[in-house]
Amino acid sequence: MASAKSRYWIALILVVVCVPLFVKSNYVLSILIVIGLYAIIVQGLGLLMGYAGQVSFGQAAFYGLGAYTAAILATKCDWPPVLCVLVAPFLPALVALIIGRPILRLREHYLVLATLGFGILAFAAFNESIALTGGPSGLTGIPYLSIGPLVLDNDRSYYYVVWGVLGLVILAVANLTGSPIGRAFKAIHASEQAAQSAGIDTALLKLQAFVFSAFLAGLAGGLYAFWVTFVGPSPFGFTASIEFVLMAVVGGLGTLWGPVLGSAIIVGLAEFLRWGVPILLPKVGGEFEIVFFGIIFVLIMLLRPQGILAPGRPSGMSGVAVKEEKCSG
């Protein structure tokens, strides 16, 4: 059994390692990098939604906080890039720790609104703190990521960095979900009252999942900053937060590979619609992409609400709703 499992992992690693050998286009490689970055964020969000049963519409803000922290440390403090990437996630994690206690006390729509409000607030801060973030024109002059003499200034090498980090993140999440903590999360999801009566500090566990999700978003942010070597506010807005939630749901909550698949589908679909819609409907503007996007998601939610990889009945978001009803009744 163990050998079958390790064979499966080796096969996956081989596929990820070999992809750049066959993909010559930088365009495709850059899409794969974006998918990898988003998958890191969605791993954290998926844990928060699928296991802790909490929804956050503020992940783009943590992503941005990580990117700006890394960029500022590199350009204004001249820290070595690798150190910046490693340190950057701690700021969003700290922010999540501070805002998490009051926010996670909220339920259902209020939790959604609070995280959404935080996202909007952070987006405004990225735009307005001109001295620190450069405002709408952003921060330039971020160096490439370098490890010793090795400078990662091309998409091929950066693909390996991002997917390597994603691999470690998946390993960590697999550790967590397969551990007593993962079991405790499932217990909270099934019956918060019984979990508390079993001695579980449910508020603390939810806070830990929230902080972890912010840490992962910040990690992706730091990696993003050293890839594009420019950080402006636009990728960290409200729409990005919604897309992350969609990726988590579409891929399947409570699954290890759902976040990767969800990110690939949403990013792939966005790219496909960008060049596909003008071919089909030559005279319409870019807003029609959004319409197609919307239709596809309505269909997914109608036909497979639990996400693509999750088995059986819907868990996750709709599971949360069902549980809350029971509590208030």
Binding site: K186, A190, A195
Partner: peptide
């Protein structure tokens, strides 16, 4: 009960 867990897992929690 923790309906998504197994019988033994309920006890382990």
């Amino acid at each position: 009960l923790f309906t998504t867990l197994s019988v033994a897992e309920n006890v382990m929690v």
